[in-house]
Write a protein that binds this DNA or RNA. Sequence first.
DNA 1: TCAATACACTGAAACGTTACAGATTGTCAC
DNA 2: GTGACAATCTGTAACGTTTCAGTGTATTGA
Lengths: 347, 347
Amino acid sequence: MDRDQTDRDDEASAHERPTLKTLAFMTGLGVTTVSRALKDAPEIGAETRRRVQLVARQIGYRPNRAGVRLRTGKTNVISLVLNTEREIMSFVSDIIYGVSEVIADTPYHLIVTPYSRSQDPLDPIRYLVETGSADGVIISRTQPNDPRARYMLERGIPFATHGRTDMGLIHPYHDFDNYAFAAEAVRHLAGIGRRRLALLTPPVGLTYHGHTVNGFADALSEVGASEVPFNTVSIDHSIEQIRTRTAQLMRRDDRPDGFVSSAAAATLAIVAGIEDAGLKLGRDVDVVSKQSSDLLHLFRRELLVVNENFRLAGSELARSVLGLIGGAAPGSLQSMSLPGEVVAYRG
Amino acid sequence: MDRDQTDRDDEASAHERPTLKTLAFMTGLGVTTVSRALKDAPEIGAETRRRVQLVARQIGYRPNRAGVRLRTGKTNVISLVLNTEREIMSFVSDIIYGVSEVIADTPYHLIVTPYSRSQDPLDPIRYLVETGSADGVIISRTQPNDPRARYMLERGIPFATHGRTDMGLIHPYHDFDNYAFAAEAVRHLAGIGRRRLALLTPPVGLTYHGHTVNGFADALSEVGASEVPFNTVSIDHSIEQIRTRTAQLMRRDDRPDGFVSSAAAATLAIVAGIEDAGLKLGRDVDVVSKQSSDLLHLFRRELLVVNENFRLAGSELARSVLGLIGGAAPGSLQSMSLPGEVVAYRG
DNA sequence: TCAATACACTGAAACGTTACAGATTGTCAC
DNA sequence: GTGACAATCTGTAACGTTTCAGTGTATTGA
């Protein structure tokens, strides 16, 4: 009866996907032994181990994810949580590829968990945690006091944030040094004689808004330049809004002679606004902008750019989450990316 | 003993995730009954059904994916297969959001399966199929004779392609009418007096390369304009390569006075090349370009644009795959998106 | 009154995996 | 020869779900 069943199974498995049972039958061992042999358990004889692994490789055995997940709770999934309206385009694509690169030779899959404007950002996190859908989570649009980070920290869910928090809690993150970026931008503008600077900030409420504002302010006083307030818009606003506001600003007598912009798409709008006001980039005003792909110099060669590498961010974030899952200390999984020099067009 | 175990389970489940067993205990029914009641099986009494569903909703029951997957093989996963090097940036982000929109109120998750230059594009598909990792697959960069489509068709794996194939086989797809785009572009250029046109094509080998080339050629003879060959590059080439080639082309005596470009990023390079050669957009030459986000007019207002909506493509593709999984006829799940008018800057 | 039948529900088995608690050897000291 | 012990290996149960093959009870038709 028992043998009979095994036989039937084996015939069936002729072209079905091999399971531990298949391997057990082929090697003449028990299912348990095969399972342990494959994961290099100590109580398995060296020769048996090799034999099992050889056969497994030969027939292309791959553990059934559902079986593993059901039994152990391990999903082998990393979830990337994204805002479907506000996320920067190149960010999405680059960070996905960055993450992919790192998890490519691991058993992990990447699932994208989106949420929209209308939703509480905590919703997708709650869903992931309550349904146990992922072993690790990556979030962006990080806030100084981030409910999502707090929530996951309380529940011991491995996660990494793109951007830092400021809650006195330790967790993995990767961040671009936006303080340094803004400060460098100001210094560069001051260096070419610009004295009245405006800042197009990241979205208010996100941690890097503060970093950027501080870097901007500190460098302003360092170089003795002054700020022209430009607080009515942020890079989260629409191209049209930024463009209109910029044009308004540039038509005033006390207009800035320099801009610092935190995102490339917004910079296009700023430049359009500047030109709407009849002014010329490079002559009347200079703009330093972050960019994540090398397109701004094609747009206007007068633009001054600082590069931010989102693909790297994705890789680092993935590495952090995997590290945390692997038991590393959260404090050791924090990384910063320093901005390069402000670069002018090299014609 | 039995009761004892149930009790223990129930105490444990006080804050564990509820399962069918929890529901069974709470309702006093059998696990089977609960399972069937939740999926509106006919042999369950109307009142019982309502009662079970009420309790399930109250305690926030969600079926365990691993359990379902192990038992039924249904993964509730849609996989989006992407080339990590050659995919257009905004495409990645938009299509993901488009897919997300559609699967948001389904039990489906979206996993992103990347592959790189060095790999056979069939590899990730084989992986998905062999490991049964997804109920449905979406692929892009579709070829006239696409091994991936053939492979999945042979194995009955539900999939949809972004772009059509040309193998005489029926499968779901969504495509932008690139024939119409190229033809419209040519007509528009002819309409403003341009007679010598160059085409920056999609990557050779992809189906829409052919469509684009044909639309271009047919409209050329229709309007009596001529082609200036520009076959050494495609939109897959680097910005630098396109720029250099364009500049070379524009310095020749027989240079084109019009361009049709199949991608926005490439258009930036074309314009840069034109200007490198000392010529002026809108005066010496006009360019009609596809774009997927509204940025080209900020770049140069002289550009003529046709919009392609990748988010829509994502939604349509997701709908197709879900439809196919749901048993709809593949032939009914094919959709085309027509290009809008060529639009000039509306100042 | 009795069989037939429809109705509402149920337990057991199975999907593939791992953890637990043995079971079977052989080796060694005494 | 015996007991102890290490080294290997194994069966069973369990994770949560669905399917199969029932079970029991009321209802119907004659």
